[in-house]
């Protein structure tokens, strides 16, 4: 009985959240949005769409000149061992980081909301979590290097207990360091997004559930979680995109040729650019864009299905 009631509230809430299409206006009304959008569309076309179209064109051509080579650049890239390693590492990084980031940031969001609500102390803590985003990447990396260097802080501390730590940056531990840097930097941002989602859940739903005898855990599983799914999709997509920006940290930690475990696609792209291997770079970029597009479409489908 209780479950059934919760399901009804859930559906009601979703229907509120969903944008209901308004009847389309004819003539000027239909033209106006496009007119207002045109400056940004123009910018996007110039700076994103056309360059990307050029990238697609170049991916079927020789490195220099206009010779058409069909799919051979793609074949070359797929067979390239460095690409395979970089793709594997990038997938591994995403597979490890995204769930961890979403889970940990949600935990902190719920914890802060439940514990501090909208108190001042909560505000200070939120700002604290966001601080890593304001710190320049270069100084963040110096800090992490100091921490994880062979003679760094961590190994010094371990030394007190008679443990000799490894050279983190030049062993497979480098992957752990990169994950830690990524989580440390992005948790605050995701947490704020989760908190926004949490605050949008009407208090009345929890009150009604509590009247019906639901406990804190039940409220979380049956009200909070389902209602946070759209927010989760959004945060997931943003985190996925942000994960591709971790190259800056990876490069600053290990240079062009870091340890094998943190050699990501962006390292490879950068090195290809240094060697002017534009044909490989463009083919790989197109493949990466396709994979990302597929992931986005797939997530959208799932989200739509879930809403229905």
């Amino acid at each position: 009985m209780q479950k059934k009631q919760l399901r009804v509230w859930e559906k009601k809430w979703i229907s509120i959240c969903q944008n209901k299409k308004k009847p389309e206006k004819k003539g000027r009304g239909r033209f106006l949005p496009w007119l207002l959008l045109s400056p940004s569309l123009f910018g996007i076309s110039i700076f994103v769409l056309f360059p990307f179209a050029d990238v697609v064109r170049r991916s079927f051509q020789k490195a220099v000149g206009n010779g058409f080579v069909g799919l051979s650049n793609y074949v070359q890239v797929v067979e390239n061992q460095a690409f395979q390693l970089a793709a594997k590492n990038t997938c591994r990084f995403l597979a490890v980081c995204l769930p961890l980031l979403l889970g940990i940031s949600l935990f902190f969001a719920v914890f802060l909301t439940e514990t501090f609500g909208e108190s001042k102390r909560g505000g200070i803590l939120k700002a604290g979590f966001l601080l890593p985003m304001a710190v320049p990447a270069a100084s963040v990396v110096i800090f992490w290097k100091l921490m994880f260097d062979r003679e760094g802080i961590l190994n010094q501390v371990l030394g007190f207990f008679g443990i000799r730590g490894p050279d983190y940056m030049n062993t497979s531990c480098a992957f752990g360091v990169l994950v830690a840097v990524y989580l440390w930097k992005n948790i605050g941002y995701d947490m704020i997004l989760w908190m926004a989602g949490l605050l949008a859940v009407p208090e009345s739903l929890y009150e009604a559930a509590r009247i019906d005898g639901a406990g804190r855990r039940q409220c979380f599983w049956y009200i909070t979680c389902p209602l946070l799914v759209p927010t989760g999709f959004l945060i997931g997509i943003l985190s996925l995109v942000n994960a591709f920006k971790v190259f800056r940290e990876a490069w600053q930690i290990g240079g062009n040729y870091p340890h094998d475990s943190i050699y990501l696609l962006q390292n490879l792209f950068n090195n290809w650019f240094l060697k002017l291997d534009m044909q490989k770079m463009t083919a790989a970029a197109v493949m990466l864009a396709l994979v990302l597009a597929l992931i986005l479409l797939f997530s959208q489908k799932i989200e739509q299905k879930w809403r229905q």
Binding site: N80, Q81, A82, L85, R150, E151, R164, P166, D167, N170, Y257, H259, D260, Y263, L268, N271, W272, K275, D277
Partner: peptide, 26 residues
């Protein structure tokens, strides 16, 4: 890496070899 201590000559050479393999395979 090697002269900094904590890593054997073989390990340091392996690390370099891996980097070089990566460089060449690119």
């Amino acid at each position: 890496q090697y002269f900094g201590g904590g890593v054997s000559a073989e390990e340091a050479a392996k690390s370099m070899g891996e980097k070089m393999d990566l460089y060449l395979s690119e």
